[in-house]
Amino acid sequence: KKVIATKVLGTVKWFNVRNGYGFINRNDTKEDVFVHQTAIKKNNPRKYLRSVGDGETVEFDVVEGEKGAEAANVTGPGGVPVQGSKYAADR
């Protein structure tokens, strides 16, 4: 997939743990970017499923997906693991 931007910061608008996807609002352009659970590179080690939490600040790359921009290599700011959704089960 073609990389559009790297190391972008954004805020998770919403993320559905059961369906495994959601949207991140970019801090720079204010665009909403699709995020799939497979794009989460550093999950919270205490969580079973990969997820990001609503309102969480994340860092990610933006790539060209089939339906427009989507997030890739999602981590917390500075490459730390994401916090994850409060609806995702703990280990």
Results as ranks from 00 to 15, higher is better:
residue 1 K to D: 07
residue 1 K to M: 06
residue 2 K to M: 06
residue 5 A to H: 14
residue 6 T to I: 15
residue 6 T to K: 12
residue 8 V to F: 01
residue 9 L to Y: 09
residue 10 G to T: 00
residue 11 T to G: 03
residue 11 T to Y: 08
residue 13 K to M: 07
residue 14 W to P: 01
residue 16 N to D: 04
residue 16 N to Y: 02
residue 16 N to C: 04
residue 17 V to N: 07
residue 19 N to A: 15
residue 19 N to R: 15
residue 20 G to F: 02
residue 22 G to W: 00
residue 22 G to V: 00
residue 28 D to V: 02
residue 28 D to Q: 02
residue 28 D to F: 01
residue 28 D to M: 01
residue 30 K to I: 05
residue 30 K to A: 14
residue 30 K to W: 14
residue 31 E to I: 08
residue 31 E to A: 10
residue 34 F to A: 02
residue 36 H to W: 03
residue 36 H to V: 03
residue 37 Q to N: 11
residue 37 Q to D: 04
residue 37 Q to T: 10
residue 37 Q to R: 13
residue 38 T to G: 08
residue 39 A to M: 13
residue 40 I to R: 01
residue 40 I to K: 01
residue 41 K to G: 09
residue 43 N to G: 11
residue 43 N to R: 09
residue 44 N to W: 07
residue 45 P to R: 12
residue 47 K to H: 08
residue 48 Y to D: 11
residue 49 L to W: 08
residue 49 L to P: 06
residue 50 R to T: 10
residue 50 R to D: 06
residue 52 V to R: 02
residue 52 V to F: 07
residue 53 G to R: 12
residue 54 D to S: 14
residue 58 V to T: 03
residue 58 V to D: 00
residue 58 V to F: 01
residue 59 E to S: 08
residue 59 E to T: 08
residue 60 F to P: 01
residue 61 D to G: 02
residue 61 D to V: 04
residue 62 V to L: 10
residue 64 E to M: 11
residue 64 E to G: 10
residue 64 E to N: 11
residue 65 G to K: 06
residue 67 K to R: 12
residue 68 G to W: 04
residue 70 E to F: 13
residue 71 A to N: 00
residue 71 A to G: 04
residue 72 A to L: 10
residue 73 N to Q: 08
residue 74 V to S: 00
residue 74 V to I: 09
residue 74 V to F: 00
residue 76 G to P: 04
residue 76 G to Y: 08
residue 76 G to R: 07
residue 77 P to Y: 06
residue 77 P to V: 15
residue 80 V to T: 13
residue 80 V to E: 14
residue 81 P to L: 07
residue 81 P to D: 12
residue 82 V to G: 04
residue 82 V to F: 05
residue 83 Q to W: 08
residue 84 G to T: 04
residue 84 G to Y: 05
residue 85 S to F: 05
residue 85 S to D: 05
residue 86 K to Y: 09
residue 87 Y to I: 08
residue 88 A to R: 09
residue 88 A to M: 07
residue 88 A to Q: 07
residue 89 A to P: 15
residue 89 A to T: 10
residue 89 A to R: 13
residue 89 A to M: 11
residue 90 D to P: 10
residue 90 D to A: 10
residue 91 R to S: 15
